[in-house]
Deep mutational scan, measured.
Amino acid sequence: DENEERIRAFALYKGIDPEKARELWERGEINKDDEEKAWREYK
């Protein structure tokens, strides 16, 4: 689903483990601007 892809995109963008990215996502600790930037680059 799209959230999974967004988490993966963010992990790649930040160079972090996707599981770590998922934890940040679930806790609401992902910066929305960074997340959008990562998503645009990923697509």
Rank of each mutant, 00 (worst) to 15 (best):
L12M: 14
R22W: 07
R40M: 13
Y42T: 05
A9F: 07
L12K: 14
K20S: 10
D34Y: 03
R27D: 04
E26P: 00
K20N: 07
W39P: 01
W39K: 04
E23Q: 11
I30D: 01
E29V: 07
E23N: 06
G28A: 04
R22L: 07
E4Y: 09
I30W: 10
F10H: 04
E23V: 10
F10W: 11
F10N: 04
G15R: 05
K43Y: 09
F10P: 02
A9K: 06
D17K: 09
R40T: 12
I16L: 09
A21P: 00
E4P: 02
D1E: 11
D1K: 12
K14P: 00
D34F: 03
L12W: 15
R40I: 12
R27Q: 09
A9W: 08
R8D: 05
K32I: 10
G15S: 06
K20L: 14
D17P: 14
E35H: 05
E19G: 10
N3D: 13
E35W: 15
P18S: 07
K32M: 09
Y13H: 06
K14V: 13
P18R: 09
A11V: 01
G28L: 03
D17Y: 03
R22G: 01
D17M: 07
G28Q: 04
G15D: 07
K14T: 12
G15Y: 01
L24W: 05
R6F: 14
E19T: 09
E26A: 11
L24P: 00
E19W: 08
E2N: 12
K32T: 09
W39G: 02
R27T: 09
N31V: 05
E4W: 12
W25R: 02
R27I: 06
I7R: 01
E5L: 11
R27G: 07
D17A: 12
K37M: 12
R8K: 14
E35R: 06
G28E: 04
E23H: 06
D17G: 07
E29F: 08
K20I: 13
E26F: 11
K14N: 08
L12I: 13
W39M: 08
W39R: 04
D34I: 06
L12Q: 14
N3S: 14
I30C: 04
K43I: 14
E41H: 11
L24E: 02
G15E: 05
R40Q: 13
Y13N: 03
G28T: 02
L12P: 01
A11F: 01
I30R: 02
Y13V: 03
A21W: 01
Y42M: 05
I7K: 01
